[in-house]
Design a protein around this nucleic acid. Sequence first.
DNA 1: GGACGGACCTGTTTGC
DNA 2: TGCAAACAGGTCCGTC
Length: 282
Amino acid sequence: MPELPEVETVRRGLREWAVGRRLSGVDVHHPRAVRRHAAGPEDFAAALVGRTFTEVRRRGKYLWLPLDSGDAMIGHLGMSGQFRVLPEEAPDGPHLRVRFRFAEGPQLRFLDQRTFGGLAVSRGGADLPAEIAHIAPDPFEPGFDADRCVAALRRRRTEVKRALLDQTVVSGVGNIYADEALWRAGLHGARPADALTGPAAHRLLGHVVDVLGEAIAQGGTSFDALYVDVNGESGYFDRALHVYGREGAPCDRCGASIRRESFMNRSSFSCPRCQPRPRGRG
DNA sequence: GGACGGACCTGTTTGC
DNA sequence: TGCAAACAGGTCCGTC
């Protein structure tokens, strides 16, 4: 379940292993992996072969790798996507979607069990691909404006958790870190976003930044083999989670039993005492 | 144009 | 034991 911290961990690995290497071959094993590349798998491969990755950049959960052609390869991990650095002789495995071969050295492989992830080449997209431009800056970008983000959050006439997950409000937040930030803020996710005071919205955003930053420092969160870095290793932040996946466990703050509720066809975890439901709902 | 529900997808877990 | 349903959830798209 890669959110911003997991994607940042992958970005750092790719920066080490992919930048400066010239592609000698690209094999698309599953067309769904490049479904966002409208011109098709052959065009995707042709735009990459002979080119060199010059950088690895990220906005929210999106990665893009600028090429020496001025184009960029965009990547999104979806729910289960992985970039792995593996020797040529390593077996393909059942989830291999795209293989990148270089003039020398190990291969880069894009694996994806649930196929929600995808790759594309953005023409002229080295600086900021047009396909990503609609996403709001994430809190770790130099251009991030907290006041603007808070204003966007408070304009949403919907529940605050849904607003946090809206990548046009703030990018990089997914189900896990939204729950954790709401727990830290003592807010139930069903609270109306447009009813938050300015200071309360700023505090919530501060918790979002804190929890994301702490998770980056731990190499991300991992519950199983679905999320690993380019070397196949897991992060450690799952040990620091306070509510996500802890149904029935005592709240680390007050001892009440953590509850699980269905929300947006997903699970939401919260403390019934620290995060009371808003009155008049549910 | 914003809000919101459903679709997409597959390996694992749970229930009968 | 075996089958079916439920579940995980980020993003896109259609509808209202």
